[in-house]
């Protein structure tokens, strides 16, 4: 039994995926990133292995990704999160699907990746200059509506497709807009729905600069929010696929990559 660990050190959360040599996902876990990347990552990893009763001495290769990827001292290799995302998406792709576009909404950025028929990345667009349209925006919204982030999806469907339009282009200014909407008597479900559409519109704008080909995969933490999925499908006027554990797709991709780097014959790592 060998374990291949993929660690996605993101801006908000650290996500870890553990793959074994039979290509089964043995464990998935996350924790907030905090400020001490190295320590928090080690702790999360140890805890994950303990909770799942896995022997950490059987770890053969560790690959890190995400913004903080170079900060984990005991990792073996690091790759950038676009590559990891692609690996994870292909690995988790449902049978019969042909993923050609990946839309990823992360904590602090959004990416759209274009793939060709060989599952190779041919083009990508990133928005990493602004929080609007990222998971951070959902956090801000949930806080202002005084709900948990998980509750946003229920609110969305209660709004019966009557989303309010959120005009502010900046996530910070949108806060004051939300508060004034609440004060004006609008209910939380309309506002939640409006926020989802605001983010979805931003994705649609980003997508004008790249070609969207079916099938489209939507991953990242916000993909757990079915309200967000609904808004995206309506704005793009396309259906999107959501895999299980969308917030772990990138970490899973890193662990898949780790496994690929390990040559079972020589019991050592393929020199890249």
């Amino acid at each position: 039994m060998k374990y291949f660990v993929g660690i996605d050190i993101g801006s908000t959360a650290i996500k870890i995926a553990v793959l074994n040599d039979d290509k089964n996902i043995c464990a998935l876990g996350q924790s907030p990133t905090g400020s001490r990347f190295n320590q928090n990552t080690s702790d999360t990893l140890d805890r994950l292995f303990a909770e799942n009763q896995l022997d950490s001495s059987l770890i053969s290769y560790t690959v890190t990704t995400g913004y903080g990827r170079k900060l984990f001292k005991t990792g073996d290799e690091n790759i950038n999160e676009l590559t990891a995302n692609v690996e994870g998406a292909i690995f988790m792709a449902p049978a019969g699907s042909n993923i050609r576009t990946i839309i990823n909404i992360g904590g602090q950025d959004t990416k759209i990746i274009q793939l060709d028929q060989h599952n190779q990345m041919t083009n990508f667009i990133m928005n990493d200059k602004c929080a609007a349209g990222t998971g951070r925006f959902l956090d801000i919204a949930a806080r202002n509506l005084e709900v948990d982030v998980d509750e946003l999806k229920e609110l969305h469907f209660k709004a019966l497709d009557k989303p309010l339009s959120i005009n502010s282009t900046c996530a910070v200014f949108a806060e004051s807009e939300i508060i004034s909407l609440l004060a004006a008597g609008h209910n939380t479900s309309e506002i939640a729905c409006g926020i989802h559409y605001s983010i979805a519109k931003r994705i649609a704008r980003l997508a004008t600069r790249i070609q969207l080909n079916d099938d489209i995969l939507f991953d990242g933490g916000p993909a757990l929010n079915s309200g967000m999925v609904d808004a995206i499908e309506n704005e793009l006027m396309r259906k999107v696929i959501v895999q299980p554990h969308p917030q772990f797709t990138t970490a899973i991709g890193a662990s898949v990559y780790a496994r690929k780097q390990y040559d079972f014959e020589s019991k050592s790592v393929i020199q890249n």
């Binding site: 950038n80 676009l82 590559t83 190779q120 990345m121 041919t122 990508f124 990133m126």
Partner: peptide, 21 residues
Amino acid sequence: IGQLTTRVEAFLHSLKHNRKK
């Protein structure tokens, strides 16, 4: 620099892969 690094890395990586293909 951080954002540019991500983009350039991903780009170079995909070029290497395509060439290998």
